[in-house]
Deep mutational scan, measured.
Amino acid sequence: SHFELRVGTITLHFDNISEELAEELEKLAKNGVHADEIRRWWEEWLK
């Protein structure tokens, strides 16, 4: 499923992401983690 995450002024787009993972990314964003860090985390997870 597709997921969009708003982090400050940036909107990150994720394809084929589980609800659980989407929730984890939302938690990171709410805790003030920068969009670049979240994207890096996601790319690492995909490997």
Rank of each mutant, 00 (worst) to 15 (best):
I17H: 00
G8H: 02
N31F: 07
S18L: 04
K27M: 12
D36Q: 13
G32Y: 04
I38D: 01
L5R: 00
I38N: 01
V33D: 05
L28E: 01
E4Q: 03
A35M: 05
F14Q: 00
N31P: 06
F14T: 00
K27L: 11
K30P: 03
G8L: 05
E19R: 11
L25D: 00
L5H: 00
D15A: 06
I17A: 04
L25M: 10
V33F: 12
G8V: 03
H34M: 11
R39F: 14
S1E: 15
E43M: 09
F3E: 03
E43T: 08
W45M: 10
N31Q: 14
I38S: 02
E37Q: 11
L46I: 10
L12Y: 04
I38K: 01
N16A: 05
W41R: 13
E4R: 01
W42V: 10
E37H: 10
L5G: 02
W41I: 14
A35T: 04
N31R: 14
L12D: 00
D15F: 12
D15P: 07
E37W: 07
D36F: 04
E26L: 15
D15L: 09
L28A: 07
E44Q: 10
N31S: 12
W45D: 03
E24N: 08
R40I: 10
R40Y: 08
E37S: 08
H13M: 08
L12R: 00
R39N: 09
E43R: 09
L28D: 01
V33S: 12
K27P: 00
K47L: 08
G32E: 06
N16P: 04
S1G: 15
L21C: 04
S18F: 04
E19F: 12
F3R: 02
H13E: 06
L46Y: 09
A35K: 03
S18C: 04
H13Y: 12
I17F: 03
E26P: 01
D15N: 08
N16F: 08
E24Y: 14
E24P: 01
I17Q: 00
K27Q: 13
R39A: 09
W42R: 02
T9A: 14
K30W: 05
E23F: 12
W41N: 06
E44A: 11
H13Q: 08
K30G: 08
G8D: 07
D15W: 13
E43N: 10
I38A: 03
E44F: 05
D15T: 09
H13R: 06
K47N: 12
E23H: 15
F14Y: 02
E44S: 11
T11P: 00
G8K: 01
E23P: 02
T9W: 02
F14M: 03
R40D: 09
H2R: 05
L21V: 13
E43A: 08
V7R: 00
T11N: 03
R6C: 11
N16S: 07
T11Y: 05
L12H: 01
L12P: 00
A22W: 10
E26Y: 08
L46F: 10
L5P: 02
F14I: 05
E20Q: 14
R6S: 15
V33G: 08
L25E: 00
S1K: 14
E20P: 07
L46S: 09
H2K: 04
E4A: 00
R40M: 13
D15G: 08
A35F: 06
K30D: 10
A22Y: 11
V7P: 00
L12I: 08
E24I: 12
E24K: 14
N31I: 10
H13A: 06
N16T: 05
S1C: 13
K27S: 11
D36M: 06
T11D: 03
I17Y: 02
G32C: 06
E26V: 14
K47M: 12
D15E: 10
K27I: 09
R6P: 07
R39G: 08
D36R: 07
F3P: 02
E43K: 07
A35D: 03
K47S: 12
E26R: 13
G8M: 02
L5Y: 01
H34N: 13
E19P: 14
I10P: 00
N31T: 13
K47G: 10
E23M: 14
A35S: 07
W45P: 00
E4P: 02
K30C: 06
S18Y: 03
L25P: 00
E4Y: 02
L46Q: 13
S18N: 09
E26G: 13
E43G: 05
I10K: 03
L25S: 00
V7A: 03
E44L: 07
W42H: 10
T9S: 14
R6N: 15
T11K: 03
L46D: 07
R39D: 05
E24L: 11
T11Q: 03
E19N: 13
T11R: 02
V7L: 07
E44I: 07
R39K: 11
D15R: 04
K27C: 10
H13T: 10
E23V: 12
I17W: 03
L5Q: 02
I10T: 12
T9R: 04
E43L: 10
G8T: 06
I10H: 05
E44R: 07
H13L: 08
A22L: 07
K47R: 12
I10Q: 07
L21S: 05
L21D: 06
E20D: 12
L12G: 00
H2I: 06
G32W: 04
F3V: 06
E37M: 11
W45V: 10
S1N: 15
E4T: 00
E24H: 12
N16H: 06
K47H: 15
E20G: 11
E44G: 05
K47T: 11
K47W: 06
L12Q: 00
T11G: 01
F3D: 02
A29K: 07
K30I: 10
F3Q: 01
E20S: 11
W41L: 11
K27W: 10
L25Y: 02
S1I: 15
W45E: 06
E4V: 03
V33T: 11
W42I: 08
R39V: 15
G8R: 01
H13I: 13
R40H: 12
L46G: 13
W45R: 09
W45G: 04
W42M: 11
L21T: 11
R6A: 15
G32I: 08
V33L: 15
E24A: 11
A22I: 14
V7D: 03
L12W: 01
E19S: 13
D15M: 08
A29D: 02
V7F: 05
H34L: 12
E20I: 11
I10E: 14
H34Y: 06
E23T: 13
E43P: 02
L21K: 05
D15I: 08
T9L: 13
V33Y: 15
L25G: 00
K47I: 11
A29E: 03
I17P: 03
W42N: 02
